[in-house]
Amino acid sequence: MNDKNSQKIVDVIKNFARKHSLFVLAYGTGCGAIEIPATMTSRYDAERFGIRGAATPRQADVLLITGYLSTKTLKRVIRTYEQMQDPKYVIGFGSCTINGGMYWDSYNTIKLLDMYLPVDIYINGCMPRPEAVIEGFIGLQKLIAAGKAEGAKKYKENLDWYRANQKKVIKNWVMPDYNW
């Protein structure tokens, strides 16, 4: 029983646990937040997949960006994301996170979320229905199980690029450094 193999087994267990225990930060950033209660409650019951809400970023695994992000909100979202502990995942929710959606020409919403935060998986639609949301989560679970949900790693490696993008839209940058 060498280290590599045992490490593999441990990884499999860990990933299995991670996959089936996703704590979603209950942080409604945009209009898409209205779909979350529906997803969580009786009809669609996301909890059967081990998905449940977490109150603070310290406890959360998944950051759900529910729809458009104004630059003002972006600042908070970045901070929140940085306060989450590894491993952590970002789900882009709705068209707005992909291309700005109906806010494509707005002066104060961001158009492409991936420029600012490493998105692991997008959920298409405006709004995406709870079924879609759950499918998104399952997609994320598959990624995790395969060990491919490495958004956080990407963020860490390309921090400078992300920072530059972030600072471009957030003029008064007074945040503490990302240091873990």
């Binding site: 942080y27 970023p57 600042k75 908070r76 901070r79 929140t80 306060q83 945040m175 503490p176």
Partner: peptide, 11 residues
């Protein structure tokens, strides 16, 4: 001062 505070850093 580095606390989870709805994303708002404590000044």
């Amino acid at each position: 001062k580095d606390i989870a505070n709805s994303g708002e850093p404590v000044r």
